[in-house]
Design a protein around this nucleic acid. Structure first.
Length: 492
RNA sequence: GGCGGCGUAGCCAAGUGGUAAGGCAGCGGUCUGCAAAACCGUCUACCCGAGUUCGAUUCUCGGCGCCGCCUCCA
């Protein structure tokens, strides 16, 4: 692929900036991961799909991406929920870590390089705290340790918050007791009875939430790295605090580009349990929604725009995927029998391909404009169908289209991969029929053969009965000019 | 109260200082034994008001509506 420069919107500067990794071709990225205290919901996956598309885009652009997604497995919520469930914390969090990974798999995300867990990095966090204490950026108070925000003048730069105003906030939290300044935040929380705790030189306790991300990101990616990703809600205080504690320790810039994904709303309103419109991925899959339709929908809206999730839109997404796959299926069927030289009139399809390539790349390079890229992609889909209908396509150009669609799909992850195909020819009643589809049982294969023969005899009554019989077995048939194609119901 | 985002056809959603991608749905055709897919045609959009401009959906201001952040929620 051409080596155009991506432009990303950097929350730090609030501008789109050319993205140049510190040490190309390597890109080091950290994405704030889930707190594993419940089944991940749609909003979580909107974010993780975005991370995945960004990951795939960077690889597609030729970068070697080191992606770290952490799991928060110790915090107020995990502790409280585990206690309520009467389960050990590790056992409890493992349950939801599993649910998280299951969801990622169902949605066809590429694996990250590391999935570190907070509880496996207590030592790294303790070391950071010791260094912060030694340099005066942190202080002990009643068994806990707090970060001294006043010692870090750049505080508030990411979130664009006025430090003076923050100081005068009325809100009082339980953990605020013992702070020098309202803005200070906990690095280490004093052990409470019955809660998980670790020994540390400054007292037994557990880490504050923000610290884990500093510890794990710097451990795996270095003290300065390229990209740090999160949901918009994390801009403040989480990321602001990460910057403060990390840069206070290292004296170096922590992250070069901060990117944040907007939230998802459902049917036009905020997703919340009290409104009854709160959905986990597992719930949607149980309802029979196609995970890839969900993937498509979540990926098709620009990440900085609030995404309005509707059930109608999921169905529409499923249709859109079908359209894309239909073209791939058709092209595969027709490519080999088309002339392998390019007659002049195919320049039309070739032009369409070039336009699609350019439009697609340009859109993605512009702050990962997925909707724009899909526009280019589907324009080519239409043009290719039209060229095939008009007999204006040659095998070489069509193969190039097919190659490009597969290349583009490295970002979307919607096309079936290495789906084993079964193919056979039936010669009957003076006709030869090609049949192809995914692997099926011998019984189903026999029915498909029978029906093909019935059709060759023009015994359509029998053919329709067999079609119906196969439908009951979950197999649908498409009769095309190139032969019969079967597929599992609901797939393409 | 402070800060920010959004408002494009029936639905989802790009984009642009010179009347606007794409997907889905609708309608009318073509093709098809049936079914599906596909193709062609078609319908329909830039929240309201003022301003800047030769010209604004695109810039500015105001209004309305929706959403979010302001210490642990992706």
């Amino acid at each position: 692929m051409a080596s155009a420069t991506p432009y990303f919107f950097n929350t730090l500067t609030r501008h789109k900036e050319p993205f140049e990794p510190l040490e190309p071709p390597c890109v080091r990225a950290y994405a704030c991961g889930p707190t594993v205290y419940d089944h991940p919901h749609l909003g979580n996956f909107r974010y993780f799909i975005w991370v995945d598309v960004l990951h795939r885009y960077l690889r597609w652009r030729g970068y070697e991406v080191e992606l770290v997604i952490n799991l928060t497995d110790v915090d107020d919520k995990t502790i409280a929920r585990a206690a309520a469930a009467g389960v050990d914390l590790p056992q409890f969090t493992e349950r939801y870590a599993r649910a998280f990974f299951d969801g990622l798999e169902a949605l066809h995300t590429l694996p990250a390089t590391h999935y570190p867990r907070a509880t496996d990095h207590i030592q790294e966090m303790v070391e950071l705290i010791e260094r912060l204490l030694a340099s005066g950026h942190a202080y002990r108070s009643d068994g806990s340790v707090f970060f001294r925000v006043a010692s870090f003048p750049a505080y508030g730069r990411l979130a664009r918050l006025d430090p003076e105003q923050m100081r005068s906030t009325e809100r009082v939290e339980q953990d605020d007791f013992g702070k020098e300044d309202r803005r200070d935040f906990a690095l280490w929380k004093k052990a409470k009875h019955g809660e998980p705790a670790w020994d540390a030189p400054f007292g037994r306790g557990r880490p504050g939430w923000h610290l884990e991300c500093s510890a794990m990101s710097m451990k795996y990616l270095g003290t300065t790295f390229d990209l740090h990703l999160g949901g918009v809600d994390l801009v403040f205080p989480h990321h602001e605090n990460e910057i403060a504690q990390s840069e206070a320790v290292t004296g170096e810039p922590f992250v070069r580009t901060w990117m944040h994904c907007s939230h998802l709303i459902v049917e036009g309103v905020k997703m919340s349990k009290s409104l009854g419109n709160f959905y986990t991925l597992a719930q949607l899959l149980e309802r029979g929604h196609d995970p890839l339709a969900i993937r498509y929908l979540l990926a098709s809206v620009h990440y900085r725009r609030q995404l309005n999730f509707t059930f109608e839109a999921v169905e529409q997404a499923a249709s859109a995927i079908t359209r894309l796959r239909q073209l791939v299926v058709r092209s595969e069927q027709e490519a080999s029998r088309l002339p392998q030289s390019a007659p002049e009139r195919t320049t039309q399809l070739d032009n369409a391909l070039q336009l699609a390539r350019e439009g697609f790349a340009t859109a993605l390079d512009d702050d990962l404009n997925t909707a724009g890229a899909l526009g280019s992609l589907f324009t080519l889909v239409r043009e290719t169908h039209a060229a095939l209908d008009d007999g204006a396509a040659d095998g070489v150009t069509l193969a190039a289209v097919l190659d490009w669609l597969r290349e583009a799909d490295k970002i979307w992850g919607l096309l079936p991969v290495d789906d084993p195909l079964l193919e056979f020819r039936i010669q009957h009643a003076g006709k030869e029929i090609l049949a192809r589809g995914p692997k099926v049982s011998a019984q189903i294969e026999a029915l498909i053969r029978q029906r093909a023969m019935a059709r060759a005899e023009r015994d359509f009554g029998a053919a329709d009965r067999l079609r119906k019989q196969l439908a009951e077995l979950g197999i649908e048939l498409d009769d095309t000019a190139q032969g019969v194609r079967w597929r599992r119901a609901g797939t393409i």
